[in-house]
Write a protein that binds this DNA or RNA. Structure first.
Lengths: 352, 352
DNA sequence: GTGAAAGCGCTAACAT
DNA sequence: ATGTTAGCGCTTTCAC
């Protein structure tokens, strides 16, 4: 391994001069400067960031921990946003995956602390407040992405799920639906809670029927959504539209409805959270709530940077990004009125 | 920051004793052991991995660099595989993204070297052999994922693209198609080259028409595929089936065909590389070549570990995973014979 | 403008 | 079984 000492010898100067030249701090005559530079180049010298960090107490590392099990696409996109901003600010990303598992998350946090991270961006698992204390005690800033952790003051970036749920309900209401089911995520995530709240509020405000049996909770995956929708249909509950928690759950819903012999959107309208290029090609083309996923990552890293370099040190910030409705076909908005047959209320037909 | 010195003081021993106890090396009496342990706990001591690494010359870091721009899902899944194995072997992952850009890749590699990585897993960008030399010169092992780098001896994990292309062509041939188009990826990636080779071989072997004009090359993205298929149709070239390089290009193809008023699979059959749960829901349900993506990551990290801990130091290994054909609807295999109307050769209809 | 020396937090000979 | 000492590669006073 080539070290400053090697470069110093070759350039005929001291190690401190080499350091000064290479890190652009302090004075150095043009002559020594070029001597050092060419010596470094000739030797293929790469400064050891680890050793530098030990001295400067700045590792240049930030941690990014995701619960990727749910939706690789979503978190890969967030990661890219984080990466872009981190990279252009000289930070490196230590990647972790908590598998939505408290123990794994805790282990990772300790590992990251040991690696002297300067900050952490995390989509928190179910509840690990105690683990976050490890960071807080050391003054290492945290930014939560996508999910809020109650009672723990830290910056947060997320989409406006409350408003998103409202948008979806209102859209369905405007199409004449009166009984809407919500295939929701895990009841212990803030995302699912917010959506349920927005959903109920909109249902009441629009004068639709509020029926708790139409709301189901569970893992954000295809299979569970499929099972729940099958049960819903078989229970005989009446509904004419379904809101799915993400694209995967929309697919589960689609599979269940197919199995039950129900067509979308003719028999049941379907809308979903989370957009993705592929949603535009799914059969039927999905009406979705589009969220600025990439921005989620970029903004999170931005907030973290502010904290790391002391540009901001005030109260926790809660950045809430607005989703937007993308109307395609699965909601039935583009069906001609006479083609539609709303199952629960076949008489309430509105061509919008 | 709590250091070994603090722990040593509190426990009334020397720093080396603390080090011995905490890293489980060397002797220590039961009494001192517990004294050290409780002191460490009381102080909330977390060993500084950076400092340890400086001394031991083992950072515990490996780099994972992806060209995520192409297919977030694919690389997120590979990353999970890598993460799983890395984590259970005490390695941390430094994440990078080369954006398929040589310059960015080179910068990242230097950054990673500076961080004293012990190995690197990378899906190489177009061609950065010189950058890989930086690692090779330092004896840092590299594993290439998904793409081969010619003339650079390093372990590689990939799917059998040659055979995959053959599988797809043979399937289409068995359905009676004689003129098959290939919407291929970048001509400078080994993946695309292998597929073209497998494609041509299969075309010739099955006695189909070999026509270079039916093969197009370009970025692995929706828009470019769409543009190319539009051009292909407008050029008047005859073909009855298309093979797309990945799901995104399949979508681009679908869009172009729709625009040209061509139905899939009635007018043109479509099959694609890369499976994904969503492919089963795309309109029409896509026939695809499924690849073991998660294994790609796990195996890559396994190969890298062997190199890092010296378990293997022989010739470069080339692990080639077998893909499998998943027949759904877009290929037309499930259409009744009389429903089909092969565009180029409407007379050649074969119900399989 | 440049060099000598100390030290970041840790571990590993080498003593004892 | 435990402590002393040196040093990993780098930066940073502090002299000169």
């Amino acid at each position: 391994m080539v070290t400053v000492t090697d470069v110093a010898k070759k350039a005929g100067v001291s190690t401190s001069t080499v350091s000064r030249v290479l890190s652009d701090s302090g004075y150095a005559s043009a002559r020594t400067r070029s001597a050092v530079l060419s010596a470094a180049k000739a030797l293929g010298y790469v400064p050891n960031a680890i050793a530098r960090g030990l001295k400067t107490q700045k590792s240049g590392f930030i941690a990014f921990i995701m619960p990727e099990v749910i939706d690789p696409y979503f978190f890969a996109t967030v990661a890219r946003g984080v990466e872009e901003i981190a990279n252009s600010n000289g930070f490196q990303i230590l990647l972790g995956n908590n598998d939505d598992n408290q123990l794994k998350e805790r282990n990772y946090i300790e590992l990251m602390v040991a690696s002297a991270i300067e900050g952490m961006i995390i989509t928190p698992s179910v509840d690990s407040r105690t683990a976050y204390r490890i960071l807080a005690d050391r003054g290492i800033p945290i930014v939560f992405v996508d999910r809020v952790v109650g009672g723990f003051g830290a910056d947060t970036v997320r989409s406006d799920d409350y408003r998103g749920a409202k948008l979806l309900v209102d859209h369905l209401a405007s199409l004449g639906h009166r009984r809407v089911a919500l295939v929701n995520g895990h009841s212990r995530t803030s995302v699912a809670m917010d959506r349920a709240a927005g959903f109920k509020n909109a249902v009441v405000h629009s004068g639709l029927d509020l029926d708790e049996r139409l709301i189901s909770w569970g893992p954000w995956v295809i299979e569970d959504a499929e099972r729940r929708v099958n049960e819903l249909v078989e229970s005989g509950a009446e509904f004419s539209a379904i809101i799915a928690g993400n694209l995967y759950m929309a697919i589960g819903t689609l599979r269940a409805l197919r199995r039950q012999g129900l067509r979308v959107p003719e028999d049941v309208a379907l809308v979903s959270f989370n957009d993705l290029e592929l949603a535009a090609e799914i059969n039927p083309f999905l009406t979705v709530l589009s969220q600025p996923i990439y921005s989620l990552g970029r903004i999170a890293m931005g907030l973290l940077l502010d904290r790391i370099n002391g540009k901001y040190s005030g109260e926790p910030r809660d950045v809430v990004l607005s989703p937007s409705l993308v109307v395609r076909e699965s909601c039935g908005a583009k069906l001609k009125a006479f083609d539609r047959n709303l199952r629960a209320r076949p008489d309430v037909v509105d061509a919008k």
